[in-house]
Design a protein around this nucleic acid. Structure first.
Lengths: 344, 344
DNA sequence: TTGTACGCGTTATCAA
DNA sequence: TTGATAACGCGTACAA
């Protein structure tokens, strides 16, 4: 029961602990023969080195952590897979660590750095509303990936990978305007959102303005605070409410694919057809948007390229090749059957 | 840079290390006064205890880990949330740990037990094809949740929470038969699957037999090995292939909602309508199945109850109130517009 | 190529 | 209520 230590193994093998340590860690200064012998004993007794003791002694390790706040966003789940593969390709270990709602990501990061002797961190999603001092506490390089930064942030002090939420939102709304829509509903972020949600809202606003359409506040609908953010359920609830209030619109743009799907359901359920009675557009480029029927027009984020670039930047930072890099990717508007010309 | 240790803090405070340790860990034997003083210094210098040293010395902790293989299954993601809340409600810490494809979950578990001094483990999803000896290596209580167990396992030696895959599959197929369908396609697990996938297949087979319908091997379609298991993409590919081969069926049962959605897309794309030309049924009870249009008939797993029960069993095991408990939940067939009476 | 002995930062034990 | 000190299990400088 009481698990074996390296000393036990050394005794069994009749060698010193150093030798066992060498065998386990593939050190060069050991004969192949003794190594095999030791490894055999290790396996037979299924000895597992104690990671705490290891990390306590170790000064460095080749591992990178991805910190994610919430696992409910399918887009992030996809990114995680990409990060895992990319990091393992570089012969680094990958750790996924969840940050809970009530936790401070910087503190969690610092603990993890100490504990695992991290080489670098990728923050995935969430919002960073920390002060500069707080962020400067981090002692290893990090890259923000699709992290909301409040607009008063000095962006050039950080490395990040994202898309241009403002421009992409503009692109979609402009596209809807060009289809002849003038009453375009927006399912937006929560009221106090000061980052991604706000940018997408501003893009919407500007596109309307540039197309000579007056902003109708009635058509801007923040997602429900009591429901999960960006979820299908939320898009459904918001849309249903609009329909019940008899609000008139010929197109609907939801700032996530999930919400677009929820919205579609509400529309279809009410007997409206897509896109004849109402066009629907989403944002993210999830598989789901394609498999929905009708397939949903969306802004596809280049997930693979973004993950790859984030990793590249992180390694450049680690190797001190760069100081700070900001990379904004352009996403692709994918036109699908859920959007069509305005009929009224 | 070089981070502070408990000794540094002790020096600054002019007390012994033991006292600092007591303050940090909320030990009783310390005066409120000195405790406040120490905590103030801790905060000011933002000292973070080294977890490795802690865990190395600690004999126990109040933490439970959920081990999950792959994050791609939306059903598991939902369960994770439930586990997190449930475990935190019990004032235990919760750790989510991902097991990668090439890793052995038992070994990962054992490492984690040592490292974090776990009190218990919940295995979520995946397949357990280990021998009894291997499982017996685990030194803390564990509960298998929705884990595939090969049929030759002696189930009574383990604690698990699941649904009766055989019976639920039977339920769905029987329901389709009663609607008058005789040509029911099945999108099943990969060929060599010996657990959940096989059980669902057997349920299908038996239901057909009991309804006097001969099994048509042409209608049983394992998901594609080169595509992600249970994914929309997989359901789409399989269904498209069937359609291209001109195979005739009036109902389709996919053993996951995701695959059912992919299948629906393939059907709708080909100009068929659901349920008029073909009924579609899924399995799991994901939100997605409801929001799809038409909403998809499915077998809804009682996720919340299952998570709750798994936690309860685990704590009972920890407190030695029980030895082994197996709990099979019954799921609910939710009838939705994607299924209807056979028209041919 | 191998072994001895020390230190990593913390908590537990015991004595004060 | 406090403090000194011995572990915890490992890696590694150094000696052999």
């Amino acid at each position: 029961m009481a698990s074996l230590t390296i000393i036990d193994i050394a005794k069994i093998c009749g060698v010193g602990v150093t030798t066992v340590s060498r065998a386990i860690n593939n050190h060069p200064d050991i004969s192949e023969e003794t190594k095999q012998m030791i490894m055999k004993v290790v396996r037979e007794n299924n000895y597992v080195p104690n990671n705490n003791a290891r990390n306590l002694k170790r000064t460095a390790s080749k591992t990178i952590a991805v910190l994610i706040k919430g696992l409910n966003n399918p887009f992030f789940i996809r990114m995680i897979d990409l990060f895992e593969k990319g990091i393992k390709d570089k012969k680094y270990s990958f750790i996924l660590h969840q940050v809970y709602e009530d936790q401070d990501e910087i503190e969690v990061a610092n603990e993890l750095i100490k504990e695992k002797k991290l080489k670098g961190i990728i923050f995935l999603g969430g919002y960073l509303s920390h002060s500069k001092e707080k962020l400067d506490q981090l002692t290893v390089p990090y890259v923000l990936c699709t992290v909301g930064l409040s607009s008063d942030f000095d962006h050039y002090n950080y490395s990040y990978v994202s898309i241009d939420d403002y421009a992409e939102s503009y692109k979609m709304v402009d596209y809807l305007c060009k289809l002849g829509h003038t009453k375009i509903a927006l399912i937006s972020a929560k009221m106090r959102d000061r980052s991604i949600g706000q940018l997408r809202y501003l893009g919407y606003k500007q596109a309307l303005e540039d197309n000579g359409i007056a902003l109708d506040e009635q058509l801007v609908r923040p997602m429900k605070a009591h429901l999960e953010s960006y979820s299908m359920e939320n898009g459904y609830a918001v849309t249903k409410e609009m329909l019940e209030q008899g609000i008139d619109f010929t197109a609907l743009f939801a700032i996530s694919d999930s919400m677009a799907i929820g919205a579609s359901k509400a529309l279809l359920e009410s007997g409206r057809s897509i896109p004849e009675d109402c066009s629907v557009a989403g944002f993210d480029g999830l598989d789901m948007a394609y498999y929905y029927h009708p397939s949903i027009t969306t802004i596809q984020q280049p997930a693979a390229e973004m993950a790859e670039e984030a990793i590249k930047i992180l390694f450049d930072l680690i190797h001190k090749k760069v100081t700070h890099v900001q990379k904004k990717f352009s996403a692709t508007l994918i036109e699908r059957p859920s959007t069509g010309k305005a009929s009224r």
